[in-house]
C-alpha cells in the first residue's frame, strides 16, 4: 500500500454528511479516469447504491449497459474511442427508458445540451461531491421537476437547475 501523510478522509474532504439513498439503485459508472470512477463508486456505495459495473469509454458502456441493465448510468462526456454523447445516443436507441446522467467539466455546456437532446436526464459538474451527486440522482428520477435546458454559463453553474429532458 502507498502511505502519504494525509489524515483526512473522503468525507472530511467534502465536509458534508453523505446522503443516504431513499431507493438503492444499480448504477453503471462510465469514465476514462480511474480515479473518478473510484471516487464515484465510493460515493455511490456510501449512499447505499450498488455499482453494477465500470466502463472506460462509450463502446464499453454500451456493452455493459446491455449486459447489466443498470437503473442509472453516470456518463463522462470527453472520452477516447467513443465519447459520452455518442454512447447516450446508442444506449437510448437500444433502450429508450435508459436513465443517464452526464458528468462533465465546466465549460462544456454545448456538449451537455447535445447529450440532453440525445436523451440524458441531467448533468453533474466536476469536481464531484456526494451532495451534488445525490441531488442529480434524485432529480433524474423525479418526473415532476421543472424541465430546464441550460442556456448560459451562470445558469449552468447552479446545481438546482439540473436538466430534465423534454424531447
Amino acid at each position: 500500500m502507498i502511505h502519504i501523510n494525509i489524515t483526512r478522509t473522503q468525507d472530511d474532504h467534502q465536509n458534508i454528511a453523505v446522503p443516504k439513498a431513499a431507493k438503492p439503485l444499480k448504477i453503471l459508472i462510465v469514465d476514462d479516469s480511474l480515479i473518478l470512477r473510484r471516487n464515484m463508486a465510493g460515493m455511490l456505495l456510501s449512499m447505499g447504491h450498488t455499482v453494477a459495473g465500470e466502463a472506460k469509454n462509450g463502446n464499453e458502456a454500451i456493452l455493459q449497459y446491455m449486459q447489466l441493465k443498470p437503473d442509472l448510468v453516470t456518463m463522462d462526456i470527453t472520452m477516447p474511442d467513443m465519447d459520452g454523447i455518442a454512447a447516450v445516443k446508442e444506449i437510448r436507441a437500444k433502450d429508450p427508458k435508459a436513465n443517464i446522467i452526464m458528468v462533465t467539466s465546466h465549460g462544456q455546456e454545448e456538449m451537455v445540451i447535445s447529450a440532453i437532446k440525445a436523451g440524458a436526464k441531467g448533468y453533474l459538474l466536476k469536481p464531484l461531491d456526494a451532495q451534488k451527486l445525490s441531488i442529480s440522482i434524485a432529480k433524474a428520477f423525479n418526473d415532476d421537476v421543472k424541465k430546464i435546458v441550460p442556456s448560459s454559463i451562470s445558469h449552468f453553474d447552479d446545481i438546482d437547475d439540473i436538466v430534465i429532458p423534454e424531447f
Partner: peptide, 14 residues
C-alpha cells in the same frame, strides 16, 4: 503524489 492521494480519498493499492 499528494494530489493523487487526496483526490483518491482512500488508500491506493500499490
Amino acid at each position: 503524489d499528494y494530489l493523487t492521494q487526496v483526490f483518491a480519498g482512500e488508500e491506493i493499492p500499490s
